[in-house]
Computed example of a mutant assay.
Amino acid sequence: MSWVMGIALGLYLLNLGVGLAAQLQWARFGVWHHLLYFAVFASAIASLLLLREYGLLLTIACLALFPRARPHTWAHPALGIIGLLGYALALL
């Protein structure tokens, strides 16, 4: 795994943790969650462009759909898990 993919996957996992904490109402992150989302999206696109890991197309599609999936609905965490599968495909 390259360092670009490592950073992208690490940011994605961090964002999943932040999302889980928010979903369970353990913490509120406000604008920080949105800034982290931007970094996750940018790093996934960078990994796709630099490494040509086409499994990340699934991740990027899920990230693009996130603004339509409201928090505290089933679609929000489902997109997070499906997007993680894109990283799994890219690492195979």
Rank of each mutant, 00 (worst) to 15 (best):
P71S: 08
L92H: 12
A27G: 11
H72Y: 11
G10F: 03
S47L: 08
A39E: 06
A69T: 00
G6Q: 07
Y54M: 06
I7L: 13
A21V: 00
M5P: 05
G55A: 09
A27V: 09
F41A: 15
H34E: 15
A78R: 00
L16G: 12
V18L: 14
L48Q: 01
L84S: 11
T73R: 08
L91H: 11
H76M: 07
I7R: 06
L51H: 04
M1S: 03
V40D: 15
L11D: 11
V18G: 14
I81S: 05
S2V: 00
P77G: 09
H34G: 15
A90Q: 10
A75S: 04
F41C: 14
L36P: 15
L48G: 02
E53M: 09
N15I: 12
G17V: 13
T73F: 03
V4A: 01
A46Q: 00
T73Y: 03
F29T: 13
M5A: 10
N15D: 12
L65Y: 09
A75C: 02
G17Y: 12
G30E: 03
S43I: 05
L50M: 05
Q23F: 14
Y54F: 12
I45M: 12
L85Q: 10
L63W: 11
G80C: 11
A90D: 08
W32V: 15
R70N: 02
R68E: 00
G30W: 10
G6R: 05
C62P: 00
W32Y: 14
H72S: 06
L85C: 02
V4H: 04
L24N: 10
Y87N: 06
S47Y: 09
A78N: 01
A21S: 13
G30L: 02
Y37Q: 14
L79A: 05
L51Y: 06
G19K: 10
L56W: 00
F38I: 14
L89A: 13
L49N: 03
L56M: 05
F29C: 12
L49D: 06
G83V: 00
I60K: 05
R70K: 07
L84C: 12
G6D: 07
F29I: 10
G55H: 02
A78E: 00
Y37F: 15
G83K: 09
A90M: 11
H34S: 15
V31Q: 13
G17R: 13
A39L: 15
I60T: 02
L91T: 11
L91S: 10
M1Y: 02
A27H: 10
G86N: 09
L49C: 07
S2C: 01
C62R: 01
R68Q: 05
Y87W: 10
G86Y: 03
G83C: 08
C62F: 01
L11R: 13
P77L: 04
W32G: 15
L9Q: 06
F66T: 01
F41M: 14
G80T: 06
L63P: 06
Y87M: 03
L14M: 13
Y54G: 06
A75D: 03
A39M: 14
M1I: 02
